[in-house]
Each structure stands twice: as C-alpha cells, then as structure tokens.
Design a protein around this nucleic acid. Structure first.
Lengths: 267, 267
DNA sequence: GTCCGTCGAG
DNA sequence: CTCGACGGAC
C-alpha cells in the first residue's frame, strides 16, 4: 500500500441513553471529531420519531432501528452505508432487530450491537443474554468472514477482565461481570475478534466507559465499568493506531451514563 | 417629592409553567432586566425542592410556597421582603397557600396570585374560581388599605375585555372569558384596583400574555389571551410610567405558554 | 404541547 | 439518577 492510497478511518461508539435527550451532545461531538462511523445504542425511539434530519444537516448519513421505549441502535457515517441489515436473523419477533444494525463502510463491515443487559442472574433475561452471545457467534460464522476486515462494537454489557470494574471482588457475579458471560463473550472473540482498547492499553487500570447514575459522584470517584467495546478481526486490528475513551460527554450539561469510545485506523 | 428621593421601581409577573424547567429563561431575564420584584406562578414544585440557591447566586431574595405537581407561587426581589404571608387566610387546607404569596417591598405590598383556572363551567372548580375572587376581595378588605400603594399581579385567569382574546365570539363563555368571571373580577377591582396595562394601552388590540401550547403557531397567528395582569391602587397607579408585555420568553429555546408582563413606577 | 407524578428499567 | 410511557391538567 502506497502513501497515496492510505486513508484514516475513525470509528466511535456511544450508548446515548435516548437519542432525543442527547442530540445536542451527539451533534457537537460529531462536529468536533468528524468520525467516519459513529455507532449509537439505546436510542430509545421508534423509527418514525428518529431525528434523522439533524444528522443530515450535520453532513452525516444515518441508519437506525428502534421500537419505542427500549433498545434501539443507529449508525451515522460520512460515507453512504452499503448493505444495511438489522437483527441476528431468524424469526422476525425474535431477531432483536432493535439491538443489532450492520452496514459496510469503505468496504469494512461494522456491526453495532446493544447486547441484552440481563437484569439479574435469576431473571430469564440473563439466560437470554447468554444465548444472545451464542446466537451472535453463529451470526458471525454464517454471515461474515474473520479473514477480512470487520468491526464489532457497541454496548456489549460485559466487563471482560478484573481491571475492567472498580471493585472486582464485590461485583463478581453481576450480570456484566460474570464467569458465564465471560465464557460466552470469549466464544464470540474466538471467532476472530480482538479488543482494540486492551490492545493499545494492556493492563491499564481505571479505564471505564460506564458510570451508574445511581452511584453518587461516580466519575470523580472512578466507580465505573468498561462495558462498551470496539473489536475487530486481526486483518483490521493490525491497522488500528489507537483506541481511547472520550470522557467529554460525561462532562456535558446533560451527561449520559456512558462515555464515547474511539478507534482510529490507517487503511 | 424631590428628585433626590425619587426612585424607579420595576415589577414583573410571569407564569413560569414549572420553575425547574424554566430556570434558565428566568435567570437570564433577571440578569438582563433586573426588576425590583419578580412574581412567578405555577412553579409546580414542593418547597423542599425549590431552586432557591439559583436566585441567591443571581443576587435575588426569593420567597415561595408550593405543593408538588400543581400551582405554586414565588417572588424574587432585589430588596429583602417584609411581612411575607401565604394564602387567603382561614382554614389552612382551604387557604390556597400555594396560590397566593404577599410581601412588602420598599413599603409597597405586592400580592402575587395564581387564580384557579376553573376547568369548565360544569366543573366544581368553576364555582370555586368565582368564590375565590369573592374571598380575595374579602381578603383585601380585611387585610389591606386601598388608600395606600399596593400591587396585585399574577395569572388571574381572566381576559377582562372583548379585545383581550383573539376570538371573543367563539370564546364567550370560556372559564377565562365569562360574564360571571367578569363580575367577580370587577367586584375585586371595585375595592380600588386599576389594570395598569390598559391604563397605558387603552383600546390597543392583539396584546396577549398567554398562548395555548395546543394551538399550532399561536404566537405567529396572534391567537392569544390577556390573562396575566398587574393592577395597583390609585395611589400607586398615578406613579406608573409604563406597563408592557415582554414576548422574549416565548421566543426562548424552551418557551413557556405565558409572556412576562412588566410595570415601571417612579416613586 | 408541555408540564407533573407515577411506574418500570438500567 | 435518568430515561420513556402513561394519565391528568391547563
């Protein structure tokens, strides 16, 4: 690859906790950072009410899928997306179409997901979460190739390592910090995906992407979780220059409980 | 009175429709206009949650009374208020303490009220509204003197004249544009109160202080009502230099359905 | 339309 | 703590 054909590719992921409430934060961040691809989760809005115009005005394409009240995913992009798909496939009412949106940008497939949180270990939603990772692995096997560039990102509702939560002893067993979830997540990664944040920050502590609203002053006290992630196939991971947490949205007038995670590539 | 002892006195009234939602509008208006007395209605917040600190920071004293959800009145002032009282008196649970707050500023009593709206003519709240004006007249008789300076202001939920609504034919009979309400309101005025806006703008049309949220583009189409008022005893009315409607809050990012009404005196 | 309270969710 | 949904009020 010559210098002439090399290009920068910037991708970011953000659990917006309502796109309507967070629209100002999103637009000002896009304006300042101009990512090529911006993945959002928990948009919490039905498609008919999605604020698509605001993205158009900002110079972004946007694709989205949401039912009212819960879940909802969207991707904004400078380039027009190709091959946009929704959900894991299978039965329409079981496909979780408001939890997964995939599209191809500059030839790179981007899969943006909002993985079920699981509520608590006794709740059927927890079994559903474990099953979801398994179904997602099967979706990767059936639909995509681990030999080619591919990005998986979003709110994956798993803190993969001991250093990814502020109190691993107390939190062990939580639905986002749990041996069964780690196994299910590892099974997905074994398809061929690498955690880009850890690739660039091995062993680095107190790096979190989520701070529970219910914990007073959680940001200042560093009481967070690293549950939002950007992973890629090895073919693309080799070209990843950086992966960083942007705390800015947490400092805004109307912060969400999540940060923005950003990865940059030279491709 | 010599020029040396003369002073300007500016008083304003604003139905805020939730003081928490409208705090930014209120503070920026106070900063720009620096009224001596600023009366608010429909604060919609219990006393324990009233944002008093924000007024202190802005250089204002503030007194208030509200129950949660409905009603609620407050007065912000540059000078410290004297003799602050709440409600019409009588039985505590019937005194409407969250609809009337009175205090004395530079020797001038200011009575700030949120008069019951009345819902509809068949609703018991309508009889209660009519009774409220009668009780308010009795309150004036018992407690105050019409020979001395005194201000009555607030959301009085009455458009007194034909020109005070955009469609007098269609709206005739509405709980805020109604012969029984006019009579009750006139009985109060007969105690000794003058409508300061009309004093300075006799016969002027299309002057409104309220624009129903449910009427599309009501401001642009001038589909309003003049139901917020500042009245005073003759002793003070003689010193009133102006009384004007400030539409600015209706143009803010988060407009309320009411404007601000401002009166200026030289005393 | 825009408030509030209440509720379920995270 | 903050979100959306809902129902009541204006």
């Amino acid at each position: 690859m010559t210098a002439k054909t090399m290009a920068r590719f910037k991708i970011a992921t953000y659990n917006v906790n309502s796109i309507r409430s967070r629209l100002h934060i999103i637009l000002s961040w896009l304006e300042e950072n101009r990512p090529d691809v911006f993945c959002m989760q928990e948009t919490k809005v039905a498609d008919a009410r999605f604020p698509a115009d605001a993205f158009t005005v900002a110079g972004y394409h946007v694709v989205f899928r949401g039912m009212k009240q819960y879940n909802g995913v969207a991707i904004a992009s400078l380039e027009k997306p190709e091959n946009v798909t929704y959900g894991l496939g299978g039965e329409a009412d079981d496909a979780d179409e408001d939890r997964l949106i995939a599209a191809v940008y500059s030839g790179v497939p981007v899969i943006n997901t909002y993985v079920p949180q699981g509520r608590n270990r006794e709740n059927p939603q927890f079994a559903y979460k474990l099953q979801w990772y398994a179904r997602f692995r099967e979706y990767l096997v059936q639909k995509w190739s681990s030999d080619a560039p591919l990005v998986w990102c979003g709110d994956l509702n798993v803190a993969p390592e001991q250093i990814d939560v502020h109190d691993p002893k107390r939190l062990l067993g939580h639905v986002c910090f749990n041996p069964e979830v780690w196994d299910a997540f590892d099974r997905v990664k074994s398809w061929g995906l690498e955690d880009l944040f850890r690739k660039h920050h091995p062993g680095e502590v107190e790096c979190y992407t989520f701070f529970d609203y219910r914990v007073p002053r959680s940001v200042e006290r560093k009481l967070g979780w690293r549950i939002d992630h950007i992973l890629s196939t090895p073919a693309l991971a080799a070209h990843c220059d950086s992966c960083n947490i942007d705390m800015n949205p947490r400092m805004a007038e109307k912060p969400s409980d999540h940060t923005i995670l950003v990865a940059e590539f030279t491709i």
